[in-house]
């Protein structure tokens, strides 16, 4: 990490020298008042978060770790619900499945998102505008509509199957009701966010940096691995964290496009709660899902609060 870091420092120094920016305006004078005012401004959202997110979350945790005996009515602190979860092969399979689908989806998002973001960042052609519109398009399509469209497009005897048939390829197996179906749909749904954040990260890399690297003879691949990747780790981490959290708790698309078994945690929770009327079981699953997402959330918070390496 040290070598590219040093290099980066040099490049950044060059870049700053080339684009000499004005110093930020001093706001020291009003600090004493604005501090208090700031707290007042953020009080409502914080209160809503405490009431609607933290309070139910803590209540859920408490309810799952304090088990009351049906006969004596005594409550004891016990991990019984969690042990039951991990002893159930079906639920264990659901959790593993969710982790695998999430990792596959996020990996595919990087594979698709990075080239798109690089194209949008560096292309000067008029086509770039069209590509951007297409990239952002999934943002405006509701999940249910997407699922319906994918079923029609990717299903057996769907449009894709028909097109393959025209060019003489047979033996198509539809991803509908398979794990691949979930991954395809979730990747499509999360592309806009991924590309937006990655493009924003790439825009912070000044042209001068790349030009000077090119001047010293760096190849395209070297520029990508030594400059663009290290300089966009922050954006990449943000993309990773928020996508993992979003995908892990997905419900609509896995519900409509996924297999009956194993199912993703969102679907599994809904089933435990609605069909089996197993409130505590659903809560236990929710707490576990929440813990995994919270761990990723911590990584996210650390990423955005870490001072920029400049």
């Amino acid at each position: 990490m040290t070598r590219p870091y040093n290099r980066k420092k040099i490049f950044m120094a060059t870049a700053r020298a080339l684009t000499a920016q004005p110093a930020p305006p001093a706001a020291a004078k009003r600090r004493d008042l604005s501090g208090l005012f700031g707290y007042v401004l953020i009080a409502p959202p914080v209160a809503i978060m405490l009431l609607l997110i933290f309070y139910p979350a803590i209540e859920a945790v408490i309810e799952t770790i304090f088990v009351s005996d049906a006969q004596t009515g005594q409550t004891t602190l016990s991990l019984q619900n969690y042990i039951a979860f991990f002893q159930d092969p079906i639920l264990r399979a659901n959790l593993t499945f969710t982790v695998l689908v999430t990792l596959a989806t996020v990996f595919m998002l990087f594979v698709v998102g990075y080239p798109l973001a690089m194209y949008l960042r560096f292309s000067k052609s008029r086509l770039a505008g069209t590509v951007q519109v297409l990239t952002l398009f999934p943002l405006f399509v509701p999940g249910v509509i997407l699922a319906f469209a994918l079923i029609r497009f990717l299903g057996t005897h769907g449009m894709f199957d028909t097109l393959l048939g025209i060019v003489g390829i047979s033996g198509y197996r539809t991803p509908y009701l398979q794990p691949q179906g979930i991954v395809i749909a979730l990747v499509w749904e999360h592309i806009p966010f991924t590309v937006l954040v990655l493009t924003a990260g790439l825009r912070q890399v000044e042209d001068a940096v790349i030009e000077s690297a090119r001047d010293v003879g760096a190849s395209g691949w070297q520029i990508f691995t030594r400059i663009l990747l290290p300089l966009t780790t922050r954006s990449a981490l943000i993309v990773f964290c928020l996508n993992v959290i979003g995908v892990f708790g997905a419900f609509t698309l896995p519900y409509l496009l996924g297999p009956a078994q194993p199912m993703m945690m969102g679907v599994s929770m809904q089933q435990a709660f609605n069909n089996y009327q197993d409130r505590i079981g659903a809560l236990t699953q929710a707490v576990l899902t929440f813990l995994i997402c919270a761990a990723v959330g911590v990584l996210y918070v650390r990423t955005i609060t870490r001072p920029r390496e400049r």
Binding site: P89, I90, A93, P259, A260, Q261, P262, Q271, N275, Y276
Partner: peptide, 12 residues
């Protein structure tokens, strides 16, 4: 439903 999910739809 429980029996079906646990014994028919899955290999587990």
């Amino acid at each position: 439903d429980k029996g079906w999910y646990e014994n028919v739809a899955t290999n587990i």
